[in-house]
């Protein structure tokens, strides 16, 4: 198995200067390694820092210390030390990121939102358009919506446009932040298929999946994210154990451990 993504002692905290300089530690010394064809589910209670970790893997958040290594065009590169224009190139070709919410752009049609990453990569327009339409069809976005700007779409529709946008390029690394959060059963199934297809073409997938059905269907192992430092060895149960481990976490517990959240926006 080829390693596609790996972190070394990744540590992140937030310093809130607008709130008296409060420092909120999020995670410390994270060592995570993900291989091609593998899906790792970040696991932990709400507020544990799963999204923060995922965003750090995309270089959206800047870690305090540690490294994020990715394989980009056959070369292993440290994202945390790379120049911005290099990070941009890595994001265009190597790392895809699907957030929970679509950032709709005024006046840009649904079809163009989906196509954009493919065009940025230099794909042929016709081919990109075909791929976009296939994805939108699979995700049951009605054709009459394709030429409209998604700002007015429902939450679920926007989410599906976002997923189509995230899967239009065959990224070797995929980061998914609750991709099925507001989807119905049929569309959840489609997303499961898309993730499994990505794994089949040897992509490394890291995701946050609160939905048990989705998690069981795609995750090969869990990676615990919490207040304490975690090592990779802690989170290597087999797939069957994964499901059991999840069920042993009572839902009430997940809710009660909410930590102060970064709130500067």
């Amino acid at each position: 198995m080829t390693i596609r993504l790996s972190t070394r002692n990744l540590t992140k905290s937030f310093t809130l200067h607008t709130q008296g300089g409060a420092v909120i530690p999020v995670f410390k010394n994270i060592n995570l390694t993900v291989s091609g064809g593998e899906c790792v589910c970040l696991h932990g209670p709400s507020g544990a820092g799963k999204s923060t970790l995922l965003r750090s893997l995309y270089a959206n958040y800047k870690p305090d210390s540690g490294q994020v290594f990715v394989e980009h065009l056959g070369v292993v590169t440290d994202l945390t030390g790379a120049k911005p224009w290099h990070v941009k190139a890595i994001r265009q070709r190597t790392i895809g990121y699907v957030s929970q919410f679509l950032r709709a752009i005024p006046r840009v049609s649904c079809r163009d939102v989906v196509i954009e990453p493919a065009l940025a990569l230099g794909l042929d327009v016709e081919e990109a358009r075909e791929r976009a339409e296939t994805l939108l069809n699979r995700l049951r976005v009605p054709e009459r919506l394709w030429s409209l700007a998604p700002a007015t779409f429902s939450g679920g529709e926007q989410q599906r446009v976002n997923i189509a946008r995230g899967f239009i390029v065959d990224y070797p690394i995929l980061l998914l932040d609750e991709p099925t959060a507001s989807l119905d059963a049929a569309n959840r199934q489609t997303v499961i298929e898309l993730i499994n297809e990505a794994k089949a073409r040897d992509a490394a997938v890291v995701g946050i999946f609160h939905d048990e059905e989705v998690r069981d269907a795609v995750a090969d192992r869990l990676f615990a994210v919490g207040k304490v430092s975690v090592s990779d060895a802690l989170a290597e149960p087999t797939k069957r154990k994964v499901a059991v481990w999840c069920r042993t976490c009572p839902h009430a517990d997940l809710q009660s451990t909410t930590r102060p959240r970064r709130n500067i926006r």
């Binding site: 790996s6 390694t33 065009l73 070369v75 292993v76």
Partner: peptide
């Protein structure tokens, strides 16, 4: 984790 070697951000581009 298997160690991955960092060959610098500009290598290979």
């Amino acid at each position: 984790p298997v160690e991955m070697e960092n060959r610098g951000p500009s290598a290979g581009n």
